[in-house]
Design a protein around this nucleic acid. Structure first.
Length: 497
RNA sequence: GGGUCGCUAGCUCAAUGGUAGAGCUGCGGACUUUUAAUCCGUAGGUUCGGGGUUCGAGUCCCCGGCGACCCA
C-alpha cells in the first residue's frame, strides 16, 4: 500500500484495521472458517423459540455484518446471509473476555464477513441470537456500505450491483426470480419434447433479424465476424436436419441504443417446431408465459413492485393488425393502401419516417401509435405486412400479409411468432430484395446467406417458430425496467473524476 | 435523435450570486439486552470536467461527461 495513494478516510481506516489483524497473528481473509450450519437453517430450526430461551446447542455461522450496536460490556450485531436471512450475534465481556470484546468493537465494521461460534439462544426481546464464545474475521471489508435506510441512486445500483445485492432485498429477489423464470422455460419446453441446442454466437454473416450487428474479427482466419443478432437461421438448419423441436436460450447482440425496454445484449428464447403453424406457436407461447408466472408468483396473477396486479390467465385475445388500425383511425388501411395515404397518416401524428422505409414499416408505426395503447392485457397482434417480415410465409388465405403475430404485454413486445417461410425460392427472392435494401444504405437489412438457402433447398418441413425476450418476460412478471432484470447491464464507463 | 431534470462529504440530501451545511457512516468517550440502539464530543469537500460572465459562481452562460424520465 503506497502512502501516496489517495483513498477516502474510511477506506484508509479499514486498511489499518486489516493490518492490525495481521500484526497480531490473526487473519483478515482466512481460507475457510469452521461453519456448522447456515443462518437460514437456524431460522427454520429455532425460529419459534420464546424470549430468553437457551438451547445448549453450539453452532458456527458466518455472514455479513449489516447492523452493529456496541454497548458497554455486551455488543450486538446483525449478521446477514447473502439471500437476506439474518441472525443476531451477542458478544459479552463475561463470555469472550476483555481483549476479544475490545477487538470486536475496534476491528469489526459494518460490511465485514464475520464468523461467530456459540450457543443458540434468544435475547430478552426474543431475538434469535448466537451467544458468542469466539469470533473470527471471515473477510475484512475495506469499503463502507451505503446507509441502509436510504435508497441508493439508480446509477450506483446498476454500476455496483454487488452493493445493490447486499443492500436491497428487491435486487436479490430479482436475481432469483430470473433464475426461476429461465428454469421454468426450460422445464416447460423440455416437457414438450423440445431439445435445447447451442448455435453460433460468432457468425460469418449476421442474419435472422433486421438489426445492426457488432463487428469483430478472427485473427486466425483473417475474416470479419459478427456477434449474432439472432439464432434463427441456425435453429432452422437444425430443423432441416431432423431436430424437429429445438430451442435455444442465449444472448443476442444488437448494435443499437439502450432505453427502458432495449439493451445492446439481451437474452432471447427461440423455439421451432416442425409441423406446427403460428396458431400452434401462439398457444405454446401463452402456456410458457403462464407456466413461468406460476413458477415465479405461484399464480397467474402477478404483482408488480408498485403493487399493481396483472392477470395473465385465460386465453388471450387476438387482434388483426390492419383491421384494428382501421377501426381505431376510422380509415380503412389494408396492404393495398397507397404510399401517399400512409405518409399523410404518419405526418398527421408527427411520426418521422425515412424515404427508405417500406410501406409495411409505416403501417407498423401507425399501429404502435394508435392501437397498442388500447390493449388492456396480453394481446396477440395477427398478420403483419409482407415487406417487413422476410422470413415469414405468406398468409394461407389473405393477400399482402404474412402469418406472423406479435405478443404485447404491458405495452411492449414480449414475443413474436411465425409460420416459417420454408419455400427456398420465395425465401431467396425475399433475401435478395433485403440485400438490395442493404446496398441502398439500410444498415439493418439482411445480407444473403447462401448456406441457409442451401439448407432450405434440402426441404424444411412446415414449421412454426417463436422468439421471446427473456428480459422482457421478467419485465412482464415483475414490472421492472430491463436494466433491473439484468444483473450486470451494460453501462458506459465512468470517466476519470 | 429531441426535450426536461439531476450530478455537492463514504451514503442520502440542503445551501436569494456573498464564510459549502445536516442526518447516517467514521473517529474518541459512556453504557451487560440492543433492533436504523441511545447519549456526549469530533473529523470529513477538486460542489462531475473544462471554459466564460462577475468585485465574488455549488448557484448564471457555453462546451463536454454520466444518469433518470418523457417524446420520436
Amino acid at each position: 500500500m503506497s502512502d501516496e495513494e489517495e483513498v477516502p478516510e474510511q477506506v484508509a481506516i479499514r486498511r489499518q484495521k486489516r493490518q492490525t489483524l495481521l500484526d497480531r497473528g490473526a487473519q483478515a481473509y482466512p481460507v475457510s472458517v469452521p461453519i456448522t450450519t447456515s443462518i437460514a437453517q437456524l431460522r427454520e430450526q429455532y425460529g419459534e423459540l420464546d424470549a430468553e430461551a437457551s438451547t445448549g446447542v453450539s453452532v458456527g455461522i458466518a455472514g455479513r455484518i449489516i447492523y452493529s450496536r456496541n454497548t458497554g460490556k455486551l455488543a450486538f450485531a446483525t449478521v446477514a446471509a447473502g439471500s437476506g436471512e439474518t441472525i443476531q450475534a451477542m458478544v459479552s465481556l463475561a463470555q469472550v473476555g476483555e481483549e476479544s470484546l475490545a477487538d470486536w468493537k475496534a476491528l469489526v465494521d459494518l460490511g465485514d464477513q464475520i464468523f461467530v461460534q456459540g450457543e443458540v439462544i434468544t435475547s430478552k426481546r426474543g431475538e434469535l441470537s448466537i451467544f458468542v464464545d469466539s469470533w473470527q474475521m471471515a473477510a475484512k471489508a475495506l469499503r463502507p456500505l451505503p446507509v441502509a435506510h436510504k435508497e441508493m441512486n439508480e446509477e450506483s445500483r446498476v454500476r455496483q450491483r454487488y452493493v445493490d445485492l447486499i443492500m436491497r432485498p428487491e435486487a436479490q429477489i430479482m436475481a432469483r426470480t430470473r433464475v426461476k423464470t429461465v428454469s421454468a422455460l426450460r422445464t416447460s419446453l423440455s416437457n414438450r419434447e423440445y431439445l435445447e441446442i447451442e448455435t453460433p454466437m460468432l457468425q460469418t454473416q449476421p442474419g435472422g433479424a433486421t438489426a445492426r450487428p457488432f463487428i469483430t474479427a478472427s485473427n486466425a482466419f483473417g475474416i470479419e465476424l459478427y456477434l449474432r443478432i439472432a439464432p434463427e437461421l441456425f435453429l432452422k438448419r437444425a430443423v432441416v436436419g431432423g431436430l424437429d423441436q429445438v430451442f435455444e436460450i442465449n444472448r443476442n447482440f444488437r448494435n443499437e441504443g439502450a432505453d427502458s425496454t432495449h439493451s445492446p445484449e439481451f437474452a432471447m428464447l427461440e423455439f421451432y417446431q416442425a409441423f406446427a403453424d403460428y396458431q400452434d406457436m401462439a398457444t405454446i407461447t401463452r402456456e410458457l408465459v403462464q407456466e413461468s408466472a406460476h413458477a415465479v408468483a405461484g399464480s397467474l396473477t402477478v404483482t408488480h413492485l408498485d403493487g399493481s396486479q396483472h392477470d395473465l390467465s385465460g386465453v388471450w385475445p387476438q387482434v388483426d393488425l390492419y383491421g384494428s388500425l382501421s377501426e381505431v383511425t376510422n380509415q380503412i388501411v389494408t396492404p393495398e393502401t397507397d404510399r401517399a395515404t400512409l405518409e399523410q397518416m404518419c405526418a398527421d401524428i408527427d411520426i418521422k419516417f425515412a424515404p427508405t422505409w417500406v410501406n409495411g414499416k409505416l403501417v407498423e408505426e401507425l399501429f404502435e401509435h394508435y392501437v397498442i395503447p388500447t390493449f388492456t392485457g396480453p394481446t396477440f397482434v395477427m398478420d403483419f405486412p409482407v415487406d417487413t417480415s422476410p422470413l415469414t410465409r405468406d398468409h394461407r388465405s389473405r393477400a399482402g400479409v404474412v402469418e406472423k403475430w406479435d405478443l404485447y404485454v404491458d405495452g411492449f413486445e414480449l414475443a413474436t411468432g411465425y409460420s416459417e417461410l420454408v419455400d427456398p425460392v420465395i425465401q431467396r427472392e425475399r433475401l435478395v430484395e433485403q440485400a438490395s435494401l442493404g446496398a441502398n444504405g439500410d444498415k439493418e437489412a439482411m445480407p444473403l446467406d447462401e448456406d441457409f438457402l442451401r439448407a432450405l433447398e434440402h426441404g424444411m418441413p412446415p414449421s412454426g417458430g417463436v422468439g421471446l425476450g427473456v428480459d422482457r418476460l421478467l419485465m412482464a412478471l415483475t414490472g421492472q425496467g430491463i436494466r433491473e432484470t439484468v444483473l450486470f447491464p451494460l453501462v458506459k464507463p465512468e470517466r476519470d473524476r
